[in-house]
Simulated assay, not measured.
Amino acid sequence: MDRPVEDFSLIETLRYEPEAGFVRLRLHLARLQRSARRLGFATPKNVLGELEQSVAGASAPLRVRLTLDREGQTQVTTAPVVPLLPDTLWRVRIAATRLDSSDKLLRFKTTRRAVYEAARAEYRPDEAEEVLLLNEKDEVCEGTITSVFVADDPDTLRTPPISAGLLAGVLRTELICQRKARVGRIRLDDLKDRPLYVGNSLRGLIRAQLIWN
């Protein structure tokens, strides 16, 4: 079961590159502040300073995880991250676990992860690199750690609307702002004859192959 509504924290997972700094930092901080405001969390202080301190002296790419609790307290942890090769292809499968489009908390990145953990547990790691979740209307929503995109044409991706019951991912937001992606509902049939991608701010956009169950 998920934790009680009062007992969760907000999360931002960033990528740090020694030469470039934090990737998509502005979008991550904007989402954190917006989420805190909408959920009634205390305003975080000196987040940027804590992030910079966590990567001081780093000479290799890092995964940086920032959490913010309701009182405005933050924690930052780091771990090495190995870049994916350009020709990486992830196998993805469809979970039986469903998302509820009426659950507004799905729009925020939080430590309430039970539904995603249940979906991921349906397949072994050697069966799929990612697992996609549908909502109660059988609309494609998102992966357990990624946003979902289909290519309608060589220049434009389509990604599900937030109202379907999914996270406003940072990579997703960037691609929409750059007009490289548009918002539109995705059905399973759309995945049969269109190129499929998954992605997040940490890993970037990844080609995917749907393995039909």
Rank of each mutant, 00 (worst) to 15 (best):
155 D>S: 15
12 E>P: 05
92 V>W: 00
196 L>M: 08
143 G>C: 11
123 Y>I: 03
15 R>M: 06
89 L>R: 08
52 E>L: 13
164 A>N: 13
31 R>E: 08
169 G>R: 04
186 I>Q: 09
35 S>Y: 05
195 P>L: 02
187 R>K: 13
86 P>C: 00
119 A>W: 00
50 E>Y: 02
25 L>I: 12
196 L>K: 00
23 V>G: 06
202 L>V: 01
150 V>P: 02
213 N>F: 06
46 N>W: 07
8 F>H: 15
39 L>N: 01
124 R>M: 03
83 P>R: 03
205 L>V: 03
37 R>H: 14
11 I>M: 06
102 S>G: 08
127 E>N: 09
179 R>K: 15
196 L>P: 00
158 R>I: 12
58 A>C: 10
182 R>T: 15
199 G>K: 02
204 G>Q: 05
26 R>M: 10
31 R>K: 12
22 F>G: 02
33 Q>E: 15
134 L>M: 12
119 A>R: 00
150 V>C: 06
160 P>M: 09
121 A>E: 04
105 L>C: 03
109 K>R: 08
131 V>W: 08
203 R>I: 04
104 K>Q: 13
121 A>T: 04
94 I>Q: 04
141 C>R: 00
112 R>F: 09
89 L>N: 10
175 L>Y: 05
74 T>S: 14
183 V>A: 01
103 D>M: 07
96 A>V: 08
132 L>I: 12
208 A>S: 03
123 Y>S: 03
108 F>V: 02
171 L>T: 12
161 P>R: 06
42 A>R: 14
192 K>G: 09
108 F>E: 04
39 L>T: 04
138 D>Q: 11
128 A>Q: 01
182 R>L: 11
3 R>I: 06
163 S>R: 13
186 I>L: 08
154 P>Q: 08
83 P>H: 08
191 L>S: 05
164 A>D: 14
93 R>A: 05
60 A>N: 14
50 E>I: 05
190 D>S: 05
103 D>N: 15
56 A>N: 06
98 R>E: 09
139 E>N: 12
37 R>W: 05
94 I>M: 13
51 L>V: 09
120 R>P: 01
98 R>M: 06
178 Q>C: 05
179 R>C: 07
18 P>Q: 07
19 E>N: 12
81 V>T: 10
54 S>E: 06
75 Q>N: 14
23 V>C: 12
83 P>D: 01
122 E>Y: 07
86 P>E: 04
121 A>H: 13
102 S>V: 02
130 E>C: 01
26 R>P: 03
135 N>A: 00
151 A>N: 11
5 V>Y: 13
157 L>W: 04
131 V>C: 02
94 I>H: 03
65 R>S: 11
97 T>G: 06
118 A>C: 07
135 N>I: 01
31 R>V: 05
120 R>T: 03
128 A>V: 03
202 L>M: 04
166 L>C: 00
124 R>Y: 11
2 D>F: 09
23 V>S: 02
37 R>P: 11
120 R>I: 12
38 R>K: 14
52 E>G: 07
99 L>Y: 01
212 W>F: 08
88 T>E: 10
2 D>M: 14
13 T>A: 13
163 S>C: 13
76 V>N: 02
86 P>N: 03
120 R>H: 01
108 F>W: 04
